[in-house]
């Protein structure tokens, strides 16, 4: 890619640009959430948008997730295009009743009459020393629910482009954004490509092993793959992007090529998302496998505060490198 066609951008700025663009493009779009207006967002993602778009479209709400997420769902049913921000995933448990019993179910319960085109953004993930109060990787909770579209923003490209596609969806979309990546800078294309929210993406092609991941796992796996390449191991990295409905075609094709797979996620292991991926590989690509599929997940503890323990609680680059080496050279 020509240098002139790319820009260097932080994950935070990419998210903000996508919000601004959505607000500019469609009058029905508005942002609501705790501290999104005057304070500029708990993580400064919406800083400056209140001045630009006014109080009607950048709406501070009371501290009641069940209440304001419910309001967002109602607005969506009434024809608006709300973007609801839930500050962190830990608070994301409070509106679960609204999201699962209403947003995800209304299309079914109304006999196909009521779509709920709400977009709910949640700050997610581990890595800013926010301890068990404000950091967890709970994507699997939502990925379990039929009727939802669940997206995981593991790259700057998706931070910039996924929201537009989410707003196109007639069904409720949960977007997980990663607070640990907010300050990371990356080069992305100046022109936002149409990304869609139906396919996983091969972020790095390789022939020796398929590393399947999402969210913050993407950049860690890319780094691990680069290190493995120096040792002569050619790893393929797959960013799932869309946790529901799951695009299994992409990773099954990859496993059929490499015959080895490792699933990496920050979320807890038991009944986690990796279990789903591995089940599908067993069901549909068993005869392609040359070794048992392995997974690297978060340690099953509430996320600790001290940095060294926090780091130890989720897979790190060296763990991924080790695991791949062990898988390939037992």
């Amino acid at each position: 890619m020509e240098a002139s066609n790319t820009i260097k951008i932080t994950y935070r700025e990419a998210l903000k640009q996508s919000l601004r663009e959505a607000l500019q493009k469609d009058d029905r779009v508005f942002l609501m959430g705790e501290d999104v207006g005057r304070y500029g967002g708990a993580f400064a993602v919406s800083k400056g948008l209140l001045e630009e778009f006014g109080e009607e479209r950048i709406m501070d709400v009371p501290l009641s997730e069940s209440g304001f997420v419910g309001a967002g769902i109602g607005a969506a049913m009434a024809g608006m295009k709300p973007i609801v921000e839930v500050m962190t995933i830990n608070f994301g448990l409070l509106p679960m009743d609204q999201i699962i019993n209403n947003a995800a179910t209304l299309l079914h319960m109304s006999g196909g009459q009521l779509n709920v085109p709400v977009v709910i953004r949640m700050g997610c993930g581990i890595g800013r020393q926010l301890a068990a109060q404000h950091s967890h990787s709970w994507e699997p909770f939502y990925a379990h629910v039929p009727g939802l579209v669940v997206l995981s923003v593991g790259t700057h490209e998706d931070a910039r482009g996924m929201l537009a596609a989410a707003l196109e969806s007639p069904d409720p979309v949960i977007i997980f954004e990663y607070t640990s990546m907010l300050n990371m800078e990356m080069e992305i294309a100046k022109d936002v490509p149409e990304l869609g929210i139906s396919k996983a993406k091969v972020r790095r092609e390789g022939n020796d092993i398929s590393i399947i991941t999402y969210g913050t796992g993407v950049h860690k796996c890319m780094e691990a793959a680069a290190e493995l390449a120096r040792g002569g191991i050619d790893a393929e990295v797959i960013d799932l992007r869309v946790l529901r409905p799951l695009d299994e075609e992409t990773f099954l094709a990859s496993v059929a090529k490499t015959h080895q797979a490792l699933v990496v996620e920050d979320a807890w292991c038991s009944v986690g998302f990796s279990a789903e991926i591995i089940s599908r590989i067993m069901e549909k690509a068993f005869y392609e496998l040359d070794a048992p599929v392995k997974r690297l997940c978060g340690v099953e503890v509430p996320i600790p505060y001290p940095l060294h323990l926090e780091e130890a609680s989720v897979p790190q680059v060296k763990d991924i490198v080790n695991s791949v080496q062990k898988t390939l050279k037992p």
Binding site: H259, E288, L289
Partner: peptide, 13 residues
């Protein structure tokens, strides 16, 4: 009675 042979599914195929 017979010793089970361990082979990956791909190897068997």
């Amino acid at each position: 009675e017979t010793k089970r042979i361990k082979a990956s599914p791909l190897a068997k195929r």
